[in-house]
Design a protein around this nucleic acid. Structure first.
Lengths: 215, 215
DNA sequence: AAATAAATTGATCAGCGATCAATTTCAAGA
DNA sequence: TCTTGAAATTGATCGCTGATCAATTTATTT
């Protein structure tokens, strides 16, 4: 009963990813099954494997779209030249998104490619673009410093936020604790540190990797 | 061929967890199979399921022991009253551990309990103990502030570090970028922010959860 | 020695991701 | 309009997986 003209390859791709997202929304990444996806879109497993290399591939594309969506939201934040305010808004945006799509967002970091399988370039690029927004917001405060340094601080904030949402997503926050609260305090404190910190004392900041000391 | 007196329950428990750790060290959490564990310890699956509720239970215990080990390492760090130095040392300790046991450490956050299955209390307690070390190191700098606030800052730093190691573990760091570098910069900047930050402007810090603003 | 409790086995189940020969569909060429 | 070949689709099939549980074996208690 092949039905080649029911849907184009692109349409099928959309159907599959949308169906996957819906499953993940309900059941989490753990509940995602190839057979269920196929059933939901009215095709068989074989077709699914004609569209995607394997489930990992499908998940990467689903997560990639999640990053796209977050990117789109964050792009709506108009940057002033006030890093405090800009970052506050970006954080709001970020956390609103993760709160509205908790399971889908969790899937982004819950999923791990098998050993020795590299993260596709197109995926890394999506992450880079998100980082670039933070960099632009952070830049005014670091006008005197190198691009590398700005980049590093942006990444630190990004990773920190990331850590919060990971722990929030796995239910590790405490009673009355919100990632929004935590993130606000982080941003505020970190920016204070950037503003007021001893700029001279950065002797070993650039490039001393490798020599991780023993405890 | 039941061999009740070959090993006590506790010995079997040890064997199983040690075998699991060895598998994870080599293959990562993805490669952990009940049958393989059973084979490695010279028993059958049935026995494994007599020891643990299910694989999730076993993994939780394995990860719990990983937290214990990290705790033990961090406990060796003698705290001076210099937060900068103390945290630097703790971070070294933390990152040394994660670098020496990358896959085992990854398993701690890669694993997720099924929906609606709460994190066991004994597990959360292990995390709390680790946090408490950071709190103690951070306390001198925040002598004037409430315990809650100290606690919050400690948790923020913990979660931030966590985020870095997660991303490092999944190979998302850049060329020439080390979590040690990033963590150092984070700690330094954050502590600067705590020292020099506008202490009066903490109006909305305690308790305003719930109202996550729209983007 | 008998009875009881605990540990251990391994066949078994339902389900999984993945594969691939066979089939069906569609579009292009004669 | 008929033929042909490429692409899409199917579904049976494979080798796994985590989990279950009646039957068996062992150790302890009475």
């Amino acid at each position: 009963m092949a039905r080649r003209s029911d849907h184009t390859r692109k349409e099928l791709w959309r159907l599959a990813i949308d169906a996957s997202r819906k499953i993940v929304e309900k059941e989490g990444l753990r509940g995602l099954r190839a057979r269920q996806i196929a059933r939901d879109i009215g095709y068989t497993i074989g077709t699914l494997y004609n569209l995607f290399e394997d489930l990992d591939d499908l998940i990467m594309h689903m997560n990639g779209e999640t990053l796209d969506q977050l990117m789109e939201e964050c792009s709506k934040v108009e940057l002033t030249q006030n890093p405090n305010m800009d970052l506050e808004r970006l954080v709001h945006c970020y956390l609103s998104f993760t709160h509205e799509n908790p399971k889908v967002w969790n899937a982004v970091f819950e999923h791990k490619l098998p050993e020795n399988r590299p993260v596709p370039e197109w995926y890394s690029e999506k992450v880079s673009k998100l980082l670039h927004i933070i960099e632009r917001a952070l830049a005014p405060i670091l006008s005197g410093r190198s691009d590398d340094e700005i980049h590093q601080h942006a990444r630190i904030l990004w990773m920190s936020l990331f850590g919060m949402t990971v722990l929030e997503g796995s239910g590790r926050l405490q009673e009355g604790e919100t990632s929004l609260m935590l993130a606000r305090t982080l941003i505020k404190t970190y920016i204070d540190g950037l503003k007021n910190g001893p700029q001279g004392d950065t002797s070993d900041q650039p490039m001393n990797h490798g020599d991780v000391a023993k405890c």
